[in-house]
Protein backbone atom coordinates (compact mmCIF):
# COMPACT_ATOMS: atom_id res chain seq x y z
CA UNK A 1 0.00 0.00 0.00
CA UNK A 2 3.03 2.22 -0.34
CA UNK A 3 1.81 5.61 -1.31
CA UNK A 4 3.28 7.80 -4.02
CA UNK A 5 3.20 10.98 -2.05
CA UNK A 6 6.84 11.58 -1.27
CA UNK A 7 5.74 14.82 0.24
CA UNK A 8 9.20 16.32 0.14
CA UNK A 9 8.87 17.20 3.80
CA UNK A 10 12.15 17.36 5.64
CA UNK A 11 12.29 15.50 8.94
CA UNK A 12 14.64 16.57 11.68
CA UNK A 13 15.66 12.98 12.40
CA UNK A 14 16.77 12.51 8.78
CA UNK A 15 19.29 15.33 8.96
CA UNK A 16 22.87 14.19 9.33
CA UNK A 17 23.99 14.64 12.91
CA UNK A 18 20.52 14.53 14.47
CA UNK A 19 20.92 10.99 15.72
CA UNK A 20 24.23 12.01 17.28
CA UNK A 21 22.44 14.83 19.05
CA UNK A 22 19.91 12.38 20.49
CA UNK A 23 22.77 10.16 21.58
CA UNK A 24 24.59 13.03 23.31
CA UNK A 25 21.37 14.19 24.97
CA UNK A 26 20.83 10.68 26.35
CA UNK A 27 24.39 10.55 27.70
CA UNK A 28 23.90 13.92 29.38
CA UNK A 29 20.59 12.80 30.87
CA UNK A 30 22.16 9.65 32.27
CA UNK A 31 24.99 11.66 33.78
CA UNK A 32 22.66 14.20 35.40
CA UNK A 33 20.35 11.53 36.81
CA UNK A 34 23.22 9.62 38.35
CA UNK A 35 24.71 12.80 39.76
CA UNK A 36 21.31 13.54 41.32
CA UNK A 37 21.97 10.61 43.66
CA UNK A 38 24.11 12.98 45.74
CA UNK A 39 21.31 15.41 46.39
CA UNK A 40 18.36 13.63 47.92
CA UNK A 41 17.57 11.50 50.90
CA UNK A 42 17.13 7.80 50.14
CA UNK A 43 14.57 5.55 51.78
CA UNK A 44 16.07 2.17 51.01
CA UNK A 45 14.57 -1.19 51.87
CA UNK A 46 17.85 -2.93 51.19
CA UNK A 47 21.46 -1.98 51.94
CA UNK A 48 22.43 -2.14 48.29
CA UNK A 49 20.03 0.65 47.36
CA UNK A 50 22.20 3.05 49.33
CA UNK A 51 25.10 2.58 46.94
CA UNK A 52 25.83 5.51 44.70
CA UNK A 53 24.33 4.95 41.26
CA UNK A 54 22.86 1.54 42.12
CA UNK A 55 19.78 1.93 39.92
CA UNK A 56 21.84 3.32 37.05
CA UNK A 57 24.27 0.44 37.10
CA UNK A 58 21.49 -2.10 37.58
CA UNK A 59 19.52 -0.73 34.63
CA UNK A 60 22.50 -0.75 32.32
CA UNK A 61 24.07 -4.05 33.25
CA UNK A 62 20.88 -6.06 33.31
CA UNK A 63 19.60 -4.57 30.07
CA UNK A 64 22.80 -5.44 28.27
CA UNK A 65 22.67 -8.89 29.85
CA UNK A 66 19.07 -9.32 28.72
CA UNK A 67 19.82 -8.48 25.11
CA UNK A 68 23.00 -10.51 24.85
CA UNK A 69 21.35 -13.42 26.63
CA UNK A 70 18.40 -13.30 24.28
CA UNK A 71 20.77 -13.11 21.32
CA UNK A 72 22.40 -16.35 22.45
CA UNK A 73 18.97 -17.93 22.87
CA UNK A 74 18.42 -17.46 19.17
CA UNK A 75 20.96 -20.20 18.50
CA UNK A 76 18.67 -22.66 20.22
CA UNK A 77 15.24 -21.28 19.50
CA UNK A 78 15.28 -19.68 16.09
CA UNK A 79 13.76 -21.51 13.14
CA UNK A 80 12.57 -20.54 9.69
CA UNK A 81 9.48 -18.37 9.51
CA UNK A 82 7.41 -21.20 7.99
CA UNK A 83 8.69 -23.76 10.49
CA UNK A 84 5.23 -24.93 11.55
CA UNK A 85 3.65 -24.66 8.11
CA UNK A 86 5.25 -27.63 6.36
Amino acid sequence: MADHKEDGKKYWLDKPGSVDKVWRALLLLCFLLTAADLFYEKHPHFEIEKWFGFYSAFGFVFSVGLVLGAKELRRILMRKEDYYDD
Partner: peptide, 9 residues
Protein backbone atom coordinates in the same frame (compact mmCIF):
# COMPACT_ATOMS: atom_id res chain seq x y z
CA UNK B 1 17.83 6.24 36.51
CA UNK B 2 16.77 2.68 35.84
CA UNK B 3 14.92 3.64 32.66
CA UNK B 4 17.51 6.08 31.33
CA UNK B 5 20.26 3.52 31.68
CA UNK B 6 18.13 0.80 30.12
CA UNK B 7 17.69 3.20 27.20
CA UNK B 8 21.43 3.84 27.20
CA UNK B 9 22.04 0.10 27.00
Amino acid sequence: QLLAFAALA
